[in-house]
Design a protein around this nucleic acid. Structure first.
Lengths: 236, 236
DNA sequence: GAAAACCTTATGGTCTGACCAAAAAATAAA
DNA sequence: TTTATTTTTTGGTCAGACCATAAGGTTTTC
């Protein structure tokens, strides 16, 4: 590529490959061309080709495991959240980081349950009910309970019928998972959580947004208090 | 670095520099060491050093302009949102992308005005009032109105006292700015928007979350309809 | 003839050393 | 002290090489 450019040569390659990915010219889930082919195609050195690929990888437009041909992955909402994961980790280690993230989740879910109470569809309701039942059956098995707990909350993120929300749920789940893992689990806690879920569900059934919000608030705030007091860390 | 590793050599350098950045050993806003120094320090080739730097740059932990020494920037919530910007662009070009993002903003602000109505501090209120007045004075100047409009909404994001929200506001602003720019502006529209802001403010003053939410909902939904009908695109 | 072991090639990861142009630093001139 | 001018540093790019492994093809084995 040109020597006296004011920008990086890799940028052009990134742009072109980006467009080929979104346009589908590069098949989704298919392999990226070999580096040496890209060299020829873009008349650039391997250095810049590799730099371009690295950028695409960091942007989440290709998934590249070392020594394997990168796989193109058309961007979706999950990709975005995923790509941010690494940086988010740093924020969580800073004082108050976990709390901030958790509180933003509480904020989000408060809105979700309100919306669910107001305009959940029949499907939403039945999904919620199914999740709740699975949750109940798993009270004795903490591992399973965690999954069903998560699934229950996940249904809430489906209510707006906006793909951003399920992706956001993915994000919260993966980002906060380490904290969750630190938390002691017991059938007692599981039962309490199940009851909280049921209270939320009932309020949604009654189409009462205020009660639903309050139930969720109690549920998640209690969970936070539990984490906070159990591990006196990241609390303020 | 070793040849027979299962992971990239750059990863180690990235990790080390990352830690030096968050620990402050590398001064924030200060320059990164020269590539050739890093080569020596990590006993690696320039190739991998540069790859590491590129990764840090994409992660948002250093800001690098071509031909200039990269500047370390300690990660904050804004950094995270910033780093995602590039990928978000793609999502916005997809059908329904803008709508999804906009609706998530509406969702967020619905929650924010409720929270403001319930527990806004004196400072929040006065900030809101100041923003509202600036907004009123700018009705005749669409350019200025846009800024004050944005500032008004920005105050809402301060209410939770959670740094995630102001960063999110930054994100919405920059991501949706192109759409906003396409929208026709007129004193008429400005006046209508100002009145909507005032209605929201009044409802918050009255500590009436339902009315505040409704006012905001009307405000933003109307804005969306205006965009949608003006430019028949991205509408579904 | 299908499965397993083997060999060959293609490809990603890394290194060395080089050149250019712009930035930074140092030096000379005003 | 300020402004030009020269020198050094440094980032961007390139070319060519080597290694180890993944992928694909070949031969052997049962």
């Amino acid at each position: 590529m040109s020597l006296n450019a004011n920008s990086r040569a890799a940028d052009a390659i990134v742009a072109e490959l980006e467009s080929q990915i979104v346009s589908g010219k590069l098949r989704n889930q298919g392999p990226l061309p070999a580096e040496r082919d890209l060299m020829e195609q873009f008349r650039a050195s391997r250095t810049v080709v590799r730099e371009a690929i690295a950028t695409l990888s960091n942007r989440g437009l290709v998934e590249s495991k070392p020594r394997f041909r990168p796989i193109v992955s058309k961007p979706d909402y999950e990709t975005v959240l995923n790509a941010t994961g690494k940086v988010v980790q740093h924020l969580l280690t800073e004082p108050g980081g976990v709390k901030n993230l958790y509180m933003s989740r509480v904020f989000t879910e408060r809105g979700l349950v309100r919306q669910a109470a107001v305009c959940a569809t029949k499907d939403n309701i039945s999904d919620l009910q199914a999740a709740l039942e699975a949750n109940e059956h798993a009270i004795g098995d903490s591992e399973q309970f965690y999954r069903t707990d998560n699934a229950f909350h996940g249904v809430l993120y489906q209510v707006p019928q906006n793909p951003i929300f399920p992706a956001l749920h993915e994000g919260y789940t993966s980002w906060l998972a380490p904290q969750w893992a630190r938390m002691l689990r017991s059938p007692d806690r599981n039962l309490a959580n199940y009851k909280a879920h049921k209270a939320i569900f009932d309020a949604i059934l009654k189409r009462d947004p205020d009660e639903a919000e309050e139930a969720l608030n109690v549920h998640l705030q209690a969970a936070w208090e539990y984490v906070r007091t159990t591990f006196d860390k990241d609390s303020e």
